[in-house]
Design a protein around this nucleic acid. Structure first.
Lengths: 148, 148
DNA sequence: TTTTAAATGCAACGCTGTTGCATTTAAAAG
DNA sequence: CTTTTAAATGCAACAGCGTTGCATTTAAAA
């Protein structure tokens, strides 16, 4: 059961183990794709926005979660599996679908460090590709076939 | 004089040539770096937020400007020089300084297209490196030297 | 010069995230 | 197990960024 691992992580990070935090971590840990605040909120039983925002912020600071900002209005969160599994979660490409707004990790495309001009220091890096995801693409093709 | 080129661009795009729009385009055309809304606003004589936002949106849609979102709270705009100069402004790396918040174009690092899984369509792409810029880096070193 | 559709500027709103503060609760101490 | 206490919660209110509605102004066509 994954819940036990999350208990351990919270203990190790020395934060209180609360229902709110367990819920958030479990939802994201079990999700195939990163989820935005709305999606997380809708999966919670007692959704208080303030508590959610505070816990998301805390868990990102403690590196339990990753925050992924594909654009100004779409902020997603993903569980940082590299806490338990070192191989996963190196900085990688994120795909953002302009139709369904979903964010999909593409760990096959890792991000290297770039040769910047003298004096520039690279701390973090993000690579975002916008477009149409495989599911929306399929739907578009189906619809157009029917119409013909 | 650059103003004449911008006149031509607006004519060609079939939008009214107004003082507001000329100001925005001139400010960004003459700026070395992309500027955020606050910075543009501070350089305007009569700053009405609504008109500014509406014109920024329009000029981005008409591809006179580029919109660069390095994170949720930092949105910058740059003049699209490729309208007049085909060589410039291919999609490239943007550097964001975590100290001064400035955004700097790094056209030496172009963005290629990625080999995405079956069914995914790439439309746009962005590559953002966060860190410390050369100017802030120099300031940090100076300060620490004095303190020693 | 007249006409008209587009652009502007104000007020008010909406969404996302934050702050202050009283109340509740996890978990440490006894 | 009970008491203690610092952290977490939930509410109200706020702040920043961008948008919408609408009356007024203005660029540019007639």
């Amino acid at each position: 059961m994954i819940t036990i691992d999350i208990h351990k992580i919270f203990k190790h990070k020395k934060i209180k183990i609360t229902a709110n935090r367990l819920d958030i971590a479990n939802i994201l840990s079990n999700s195939k794709h990163p989820l935005n605040t709305k999606e997380i909120e809708s999966k919670l039983n007692e959704p208080d926005r303030v508590t959610l925002y505070r816990n998301l912020k805390l868990l990102v600071e403690l590196e339990v979660l990753h925050k992924i900002e594909v654009n100004g209005s779409t902020v997603s969160y993903a569980f940082n599996h590299s806490i338990t599994d070192v191989n996963k979660n190196k900085e990688h490409l994120h795909f953002h679908c302009n139709i369904c707004n979903k964010v999909i990790c593409m760990p096959q495309h890792k991000i290297n460090s770039y040769n910047l001009p003298e004096g520039f220091i690279q701390e973090k890096c993000k690579l975002i590709v916008d477009g149409i995801c495989n599911i929306c693409n399929k739907e578009i093709n189906n619809t157009s076939t029917i119409q013909e």
